[in-house]
Design a protein around this nucleic acid. Structure first.
Lengths: 203, 203, 203, 203
DNA sequence: AATGAATGAGTTTTCATTCAT
DNA sequence: GATGAATGAAAACTCATTCAT
């Protein structure tokens, strides 16, 4: 990569880093583009060389950070050697929640976007390759599962909303319980949802 | 109530109505105080006689609208004569979801706020009397229940997050299923959560 | 008029005066709204209470200044007692050119707009009452004229374009002749145009 | 011409062509240098190798396009064999108006600049050789004319302003008459101006 | 209590111009 | 000659808030 391209990438990442930090600390709406460029140490016009507007840089941030989280979880899952589908789901969730609890800023950034709508519309298209696409992964795992399920899409929908909804307050405020104490309740419920949605053994 | 108080109340309600409609149609951040006062037909300064700022009027709106929803659900529940705790919970949820599906604007206003955090911090303090406080109601019902539960607060937390998370997309976009088709899945899961959290028969 | 309305009118006129002076001295495109409000001694937001944008204030200026010029010329014409149509036209033109040569700033403001298109589309609608509308005046005078003309609209069109085109350089730069020396040529030509377009005596 | 000069000329002309098209379609002030270089397919810095700024390229465009128009008209005039001065003037005007009515973009570009000031200050210096200089041509023709005229410079001034002023709206908007219908009025008037300015037969 | 004119800091966005490569 | 990333001044416009009436 040429020197100038290195520099370009550096500027872009400097903007992304600054925006991330400001969005987290002050909130999206209270962060101005002036704030971002000042923190990044670049001129105001430079922002517009890399991003269309404030929403654009947020979307890039979200898809970038989310893709990292899922990529990590998926790699660990592959390494883990777990073969049972339902245990794979639990492992995957656990890995993501652990990443979140170690980086609460991630939760703040992704919180309102980590919903089924994001998986469906956003992640599928954006920065993830097909094999890393969260729904694609899910369907791959599903095809190897020991059971078939009443409505897998609804099942994952309920799991996603339950997990993202319950983990948010727990990680950020320890309410109603700290994450480690809440996990057993969540995982019990997730297991129950899957068990309950089983139709019959596959094959 | 004196004539002047009537007038005062009228202005306040006009502001609330206008703000509601504008928040719903244009979004909170794209609605200015100028927009609100213009729609309400009052002068700009008048806004500040009744509300501190834009967030203040939103909070009043949310607590007001939410209190109506819960009040309706609770009254119907009382009228229903249902005595079994778990069926009371289902009835209560169903009543609220029906109100939401008949008034999608309510969902748009309350969506991001209809979470356990709202019940805990917001509703308990705001406009609801003690007997109408959602958590108070819940504990009253619970004390008459046939079972005791492992951790009732965590249980209601999971139910609230599951129901609010899953119903949002369903009501607004019919995704991944229209509400009426999604309900069986939700209620099954809610029943399972409660069943699974039972510790022993009370008494 | 109330004190507050006086004040409003004063602010508006202060903005118009400042804009006029800046447009003349620096040109429309090199004048910013910041310049205007600073010169007028009002806050930036105040500008937008009175005018939509920079073009808006320019249009108000043009129509205001033009209406003054025509109003003056028409009043003098009425006072003059001249009855012959062709002499009325000459008198009217002469009066306007005299106003311009005494206030070259007016020429700078109106120059590119003092065309037949302006009479047709702009002045007719804007600030002039019907009886002061330039085309209305023209047709009134025409109806009393001793002759009818081949195509009065084309005739006035040619006169307007000839007079406005030739007077501009003459007034501003004395080229190719100072106005007073150019006038005989212009008036000769205008008289010739009218004479040439005569069809027959009216009645 | 060397290959590199070809290339250089090509870039310059590409910039001129792009600027012409953008000025016509979007207007001078709404066209940015970025727009021009993008349309021309060259880098931003390249613009400044050929032109000083936006006004500079416009001036080059105007003088270039205008010189083409006059050159064409003059060549045709020479070919026509017309010897009478006043008919030469009419022929020359007619040829130019025909070019304009076949290329309305030319009118848009030249409109506000096709005035006597342009002939005097601009064209005489710029791209036209002496024998193609419009005023030079005029004086050459004049020296062969059958009459002398009161003030030939004022005469041409009036003709130029009359013709350019009246043709603009007619060509672009068909107002107050389409060009072909307006021409008789214009040419009548031009002939009258010349006839009226005759002093005596030459020689 | 009610008004609404006035404020001016703050925001987004554009764009001519430079200069290291 | 050619490039195009970077600049940052400057532009238009918004809007929550105040306060004299």
């Amino acid at each position: 990569m040429k020197r100038i391209d290195m520099n370009k990438k550096k500027k872009r990442e400097s903007l992304l880093d600054s925006a991330f930090s400001l969005f987290i600390n002050n909130g999206f709406h209270k962060t101005s583009i002036s704030d971002i460029v000042e923190a990044a140490g670049v001129a105001k016009g430079t922002f517009y060389l890399y991003f269309k507007d404030k929403s654009d840089i947020r979307n890039h941030l979200i898809s970038h950070k989310a893709s990292l989280v899922f990529h990590n979880a998926y790699r660990s899952l592959t390494d883990s050697g777990i073969t049972d589908f339902e245990e794979q789901v639990i492992f995957f969730i656990d890995h993501i929640l652990n990443q979140f609890s170690e980086d609460r800023q991630l939760v703040l950034l992704l919180s309102k976007h980590l919903s089924w709508g994001m998986f469906k519309n956003f992640l599928s298209a954006a920065e993830l390759k097909d094999s890393e696409n969260i729904l694609g992964i899910f369907h791959n795992l599903l095809s190897e599962a020991a059971y078939t399920y009443r409505n897998p899409e609804v099942m994952i929908y309920m799991i996603v909303e339950l997990v993202s909804g319950t983990s948010y307050n727990s990680i950020l405020y320890g309410q109603p319980l700290p994450l480690e104490q809440l996990k057993p309740y969540i995982y019990d419920t997730v297991r129950n949802i899957m068990k309950n949605e089983r139709v019959k053994p596959a094959h």
